[in-house]
């Protein structure tokens, strides 16, 4: 064949083929897609309302005002929704395992994890990401942000790291599903519980919660800590103010844990299951 194709184009062709078919299929059921978009939007709004209702009764929570918590909620929900859009279907692994569809992945010449990740995409989560984005922008406008190059860099780095961290949480959970199967809800405690935790000011947590959702699953690094750093607020116990710059480290750590979990899971599947 004569067409000049770069190695990148060739290498990504299988994944692009699957993903574009998924997108076309979702858009072809127009009525369903609209319902999905609306409900996803509602989920975001309801979650924001849950935070907002608390501030009707108090002025500050965990040292943050409402405009400041909007930044935390916005960063957390934006990052989670984007990760959910691209990685959320990893939750379906138990179904794949029960139906034996995972075996089909073994018959294709791509890495298993990449196949699983690129096997689907949920465009409807875009609506929820918009709620997060709107909350973030509102918060940034209303809160007293000292704008500088560093502030913009911090925001960008934190948002990208947050997406990566949540994505890794989905992969970590998928690895654990190889063992749990029926007990998949246990991982929800940390993936979806993680999202809930990420939208809270970590300053309200006790020490055990700080260890679990501050560091082991570094949820505080996706939104709260960068916000504290951005606004120049004082840190809390175990969490100094500068820690917000370390979001990329948290993402790398979570991915290392996720890949390890996936490896152990696959090894178990090949060796033990049947």
């Amino acid at each position: 064949m004569a067409d000049p194709t770069s190695p990148l184009v060739t290498l990504t062709r299988p994944y692009r083929a699957v993903l574009s078919s998924r997108i076309r299929s979702q858009r072809s059921y127009r009525a369903n897609f609209t319902i999905d978009l609306v409900s996803s939007l509602l989920v975001g709004i309801v979650e924001l309302a849950e935070v907002g209702v608390l501030f009707l009764n108090v002025d500050r929570l965990g040292g943050l005002e409402f405009t400041q918590i909007l930044i935390v909620f916005g960063l957390a929900d934006l990052a989670f929704s984007v990760a959910d859009l691209a990685f959320g279907h990893c939750d379906n692994l138990p179904t794949y395992l029960r139906a034996g569809t995972l075996d089909v992945f073994y018959l294709r010449p791509q890495p298993l994890l990449l196949q699983l990740i690129t096997s689907n995409i949920s465009l409807r989560r875009l609506a929820r990401a918009m709620v997060g984005l709107a909350s973030l922008v509102t918060g940034l406008v209303l809160a007293d942000v000292d704008w500088s190059f560093a502030a913009v860099a911090l925001l960008l780095v934190s948002a990208l790291s947050g997406i990566a961290t949540f994505a890794a949480m989905f992969v970590w959970a998928a690895g654990a599903q190889f063992f749990l199967i029926d007990g998949a809800e246990a991982t929800n405690a940390f993936v979806y519980g993680g999202r809930y935790a990420a939208s809270q000011p970590a300053s309200v947590w006790n020490r055990p919660l700080k260890v679990v959702f501050g560091f082991f699953f570094p949820m505080a690094f996706t939104a709260y800590l960068p916000t504290v750093t951005l606004l120049g607020l004082p840190g809390t116990d175990l969490m100094p103010s500068w820690l917000g710059w370390c979001a990329p480290l948290a993402a790398i750590f979570t991915w290392a844990m996720a890949l390890l979990s996936w490896r152990i899971g696959v090894r178990h599947y090949r060796g033990g299951g049947g």
Partner: peptide, 15 residues
């Protein structure tokens, strides 16, 4: 499944 549910309920409860 029930054990998984219990873990999830408790974690959300603590948060």
């Amino acid at each position: 499944a029930a054990l998984g549910g219990l873990i999830a309920n408790t974690t959300f409860g603590l948060l």
